[in-house]
Design a protein around this nucleic acid. Sequence first.
DNA 1: GCGATTCTCTGACTACAGTCAGAGAATGGA
DNA 2: TCCATTCTCTGACTGTAGTCAGAGAATCGC
Lengths: 296, 296
Amino acid sequence: MDTSPVATLRHFNRAWSQRVGALDASFLGSGRPLGPSRLLFEIGPDGVGVRTLRRRLGLDSGYLSRLLRQLEDDGLVEVVADPADGRRRLATLTAKGRRERRKVDDRSERLARALVAPLTQTQRSRLDEALATAERLLRAATVVLEPVDALAPEAVAAVSSYFDELDRRFPGGFDPGDAIPHDAAGFAPPYGVFVLARGDDEVAACGGVQRLPDGVAEIKRMWVDPAWRGAGLGARMLGHLEAEAARLGHDVVRLDTNSTLVEAISMYEHAGYRSIERYNDNPYARRWFEKRLDGG
Amino acid sequence: MDTSPVATLRHFNRAWSQRVGALDASFLGSGRPLGPSRLLFEIGPDGVGVRTLRRRLGLDSGYLSRLLRQLEDDGLVEVVADPADGRRRLATLTAKGRRERRKVDDRSERLARALVAPLTQTQRSRLDEALATAERLLRAATVVLEPVDALAPEAVAAVSSYFDELDRRFPGGFDPGDAIPHDAAGFAPPYGVFVLARGDDEVAACGGVQRLPDGVAEIKRMWVDPAWRGAGLGARMLGHLEAEAARLGHDVVRLDTNSTLVEAISMYEHAGYRSIERYNDNPYARRWFEKRLDGG
DNA sequence: GCGATTCTCTGACTACAGTCAGAGAATGGA
DNA sequence: TCCATTCTCTGACTGTAGTCAGAGAATCGC
């Protein structure tokens, strides 16, 4: 039933935080409070902008500033102005900071190791698989879909990744031409929409709806980042775009695809799309699909 | 490899605490800090001893006392002296406290529900299964085995549960007679040992080693609590008892069992035991096994 | 019955996490 | 060039979590 995963989730949460919460508390063992330790981790070996840190850790700017100052006083990080924009500042680890970070890392690693030590090899693989599955699903569950301007930098980046993938997968490659600016007009309200799926501050998927000349809706540029595949994000995006199309007043959606994209084709068929005749002159398309939104 | 579950574990921990840590923080939404909220939960509908609370939550006695006082002032709990022992105190929820507890519970439930809401039914079941598997394995991994006196209350309770199970499973029932006090002598050092597996403050499994009249070691009273089965605890206990036998100077161990206990038999065979002739006059035994500890 | 022990409570702290308001430098757009 | 905005930092707070020492009542073991 529906209640089961919820109960399991809550139950698991208690068990987990009792046992493995120790992995966080391990930061404490380093003689440094949690805040600075997490920060040390998040800065990473290559340094990062203060602004990014603030967003990633969800900290108050004043608080973060003080934490950084503390680490700086201990000689673990260096904070310098961003040469590209004097308002921003960049934090990097010093040699001492990198050592310290490794120490905390080792500590956490040892704790994790000790935790699984009593398990047999088989049980460890089962645990590994279970946690990986759970994480993938949880990550996918917390992805949020939101409409954006098709020319917003993140949108452009996502579509470019999509085109790059097409170029790698199509036997003859793929030439986008001026597709991005050309699409943008079609994805703009009130006749279309472009949607980004965001998780962990990353773009996980994208897709858009536009109106074909004959008034029917078309779904285009649907793409899921490889790192996010296998958790039903494609189907969710598809459903979301269909709902958007319906909201825009359509009761039929179409889409085209290339025979190479077998996962996509099976997803469309699974979602109730049926094959139709060529409805456009897209030179890369080999298959055309249509779905009635009222369930017909 | 060995490193993989460790990496997954640590990775999962980050993802989990970022997303689902919200389930804890949800306590905060009740206008009450985490400490008192957790306490409200742990007291439960039936009330509980303060001492138990302290152990379960791992709190300082002074701190706990203050937390309880706070909840008492809010009219949520009542703390009264234990009639059986005037030093101890018992905490119970008032009607208002029960309402408040339910409110927090609902809140957490809703959050968990919202978390899995974007997933399809199939994905939810997969998540459910993955989390349940992970929890079972983690619980098993944190079980600790330790030698105890065979007449300690927990040991007696465990063996009694074992006998009860035999009585239910054997076609003709099982009569323990004076087995418990009789065993105790054999399990006592220096010739024997009795081991309890403890997890979550519960007894998860038990088992003992004693010396047969002919000088060979015998493993007896091995039992895993039904709630803890399916995570390899039996095999772990068996291995542990073999190691204990070796430590006591033996290089051969024997054990007997009833044909009804099929899981046990397959575990013994899997662990390298081979069937032998009857070596004792146990009226309930139908199968007898032996294993050389040096690997022969 | 008496001393040692167990159990809870009080007082006096400390450290950590985080918020809020506002100042000041750098930048971008009209 | 100037005004609004962005970004970081400082000062002044608040609340929560938790520790430590010790007092006082009840109980246990002899």
